[in-house]
Nucleic acid binder design. Structure first.
Lengths: 339, 339
DNA sequence: TTGTAAGCGTTATCAC
DNA sequence: GTGATAACGCTTACAA
């Protein structure tokens, strides 16, 4: 009962069947204006044999792959999931496919991926890098396809950029805590060598100054990573060494860890300790109590980055652009006023 | 200051520089055994000009793209995020790239994607379909590249398959509730036309029977989708019409919605109402109280699917395989014993 | 408007 | 082992 295995039809097959040249067939397939007569014949022939153009041949010749890539630190962090959704929408509207790559925040892996771009399997890349180095700038420079960065590239890097303003966002969060009567406000940060880590610390310090609070390094704790478990451990260390009535966490995952550590310590949120996170991920809605957090516009940043990238692919010499997206405090129950 | 734009080097460039034929250069690049002398020369030349093979040309000739695709219903559901991570590991170990596609559970979109496969931009597909129809089976049949399905394909579909056992998982969850003294156990299900929807309902009914509980359709509510908000609404409807002391939710997202509705109604979990979810997503750890749930082995299923797919790509005529993954109840605080 | 023909950059099949 | 050379399936000048 083995089927006679029909050869996959090529453009030549179609052309022959329609009694036209491959050139004409190609034109019809690509929607280039042609005589209605031949158009009909080619369309019919293509339909008849179930013709589908071969992607490799097409991109070899046209130098377009119809694919863009998105490289991010961590697929499991919902903030990037949101970005993926956003980018996929733009890509789909453009008829492009999306290639995903999770770098685990590893600089070496990022550089490797940038270098892979030279294979030209993709028309461009959207990169989220927590730690954009000079090496990144160089890798981008000889990448042969355009790169759009979400984050903070080094000065002079030839990339379109979408910048969050997490410094201001962090400051807003801390000021909010202060205005609710909190005075011992801790910072649970991720690694400070990263762009988010350094910006959020600066914002925290900005706000302390603005509120007339003294900086107390006992209130600053660094988690090994922007993730739940490190967040929990960081808060355990904090609780062991000092008193506090509020914690600003550098992202929502850290905040989830914080909530869990506080609960384990028998502390009530927000009565004893208020907590604020950052990113406004869907997780912040399902914690108990619901998490006050700072929305850095992940979906919007990703959408803009995708649009910038597609625009540059279409027009490689346009001026570089850099767009900022402003933060927005989202108040929920995790940081009510002091009892 | 415009650089003189060095042409992107091709294999010909390298061959000329190394004073060998393109054929030899190609062999070296592909690690085919050659005279150490020429090997050295080619390697040096390639290095010197920064040669990188062109993906399109390569796959046009070799009929391999080095890419696999993963199509799932919803990027935002953490259960699929876990799968993505798992698949990416296997793909990376194999030197393959991963293309992601979110179908929104839309059957039409799934069929469209299957049909796109004919463009051959990918060596194979891993598909999660909630509702695998005859049309899917046909689309797969003339797909020109292998497909592995996570879920329940129709009989006779020519695909490697990884099956969850959510029927048994659901039954286990409900039996657990019963053994904790619950007697009015509700089911919050997703659409029953889907495979998970129908399997989980069957499991629920199995367990009722096994525990000697009567079926009461007032205790069964269907959410419009396997998501948080529909889960919340479903529970509101339930509470409005009947008494209950436990809810089995067909996935974790529904359970999050349930927790939120119960809280809003002033009910304590687990004292008044116990809740069990399904999928053991990372969300189940961060709710309050932490969610008892059924692990259907998402990561493992995805890993196996990826391995089956790669094996078939390497060996298209091997026997079709179908692997089952068994569920595991994960007990947390959301369903303690009756007070 | 349509056809002819020249590649795009590789890999694979041959002789040598 | 190595080198010509013919594809792979398509797009695109250019000529008709």
């Amino acid at each position: 009962m083995q089927k006679p295995e029909p050869e996959t039809p090529t453009l030549t097959t179609v052309a022959r069947l329609a009694n036209v040249s491959v050139a004409s067939a190609s034109r019809v397939i690509n929607g280039i204006k042609t005589n209605p007569e031949t158009l009909a014949r080619v369309t019919a022939a293509a339909e008849a044999v179930g013709y589908v153009p071969n992607a490799a041949a097409r991109s070899l010749r046209s130098r377009r792959t119809g694919q863009i890539a998105f490289a991010m630190p961590d697929v499991a962090n919902p903030v990037y999931t949101v970005m993926v959704g956003s980018i996929q929408q733009v890509a789909r509207a453009n008829g492009s496919r999306l290639i995903l790559h999770s770098t685990d925040g590893d600089v070496g892996d990022e550089l490797g991926f940038l270098s892979d771009l030279k294979q030209r399997y993709v028309d461009g890349l959207i990169l989220v890098s927590l730690e954009f180095t000079e090496a990144h700038a160089e890798a981008v420079a000889d990448a042969t396809v355009p790169v759009a960065v979400i984050g903070h590239p080094t000065k002079g890097a030839r990339v379109d950029t979408v910048r969050p303003n997490s410094r201001r966002g962090a400051a807003e969060a801390v000021r909010h805590l202060h205005s609710n009567g909190r005075r011992r406000i801790a910072l649970v940060n991720g690694p400070e060598r990263t762009a988010p880590g350094s910006a959020r610390k600066l914002g925290y310090l900005d706000a302390l100054r603005a509120c007339g609070l003294d900086r107390d390094d006992d209130l600053i704790e660094i988690a090994g990573d922007f993730m739940i478990e490190p967040g929990r451990e960081a808060v355990e260390r904090l609780l062991a060494r000092t008193k506090l009535d509020a914690i600003f966490c550098a992202n929502d995952l850290l905040a989830l860890g914080a909530l869990s550590a506080l609960r384990a310590a028998g502390l009530d949120v927000p009565r004893d300790v208020a907590v604020v996170g950052m990113d406004n991920t869907n997780l912040s809605l399902v914690t108990w109590p619901p998490l006050t957090t700072v929305d850095l516009g992940a979906g919007e940043r990703a959408r803009i980055a995708a649009e910038l990238l597609l625009a540059r692919i279409a027009q490689p010499n346009r001026r570089l652009r850099s767009v900022g997206v402003e933060p927005r405090l989202v108040v929920r129950e995790s940081c009510g006023a002091r009892a």
